[in-house]
Amino acid sequence: MSYLLPHLHSGWAVDQAILAEEERVVIIRFGHDWDDTCMQMDEVLASVAETIKNFAVIYLVDITEVPDFNTMYELYDPSTVMFFFRNKHIMIDLGTGNNNKINWALKDKQEFIDIVETVYRGARKGRGLVIAPKDYSTKYRY
């Protein structure tokens, strides 16, 4: 479903996308459109984009086309979702040990909306780190 979402084709575009938003959370998915993990993730993203458009905006970045952030953001996983607000990287304590990003495919739409909302609320208050409503540590995943 990646075709429903806007793509960013250069590092500059990514930066502009992050800088341009004043009032909304910027969600960026790094990965490849053809990757199945990404596909699963994009399914969710595309379906919630309309729902959360008042407080969040979603972009997709192909990390092969735009490798500028690969080392910077440690983009080694098949799919990586990161949150920015007013040019600030917002971290989420998901219980996975990596608070920087969601590096797996989140399949539940409502969970994603909850996370985005939590990020938005926390970011509005000036928080750099928010705590996800659900714990995604491995013991719950398996």
Partner: peptide, 20 residues
């Protein structure tokens, strides 16, 4: 910005002072 070309020699992340 979705369609415009980036300026030459632009270093990604620098423009907004991003830190990894």
């Amino acid at each position: 910005f979705l369609n415009s070309k980036p300026p030459p020699n632009y270093v990604a992340g620098l423009g907004r002072g991003a830190t990894g």
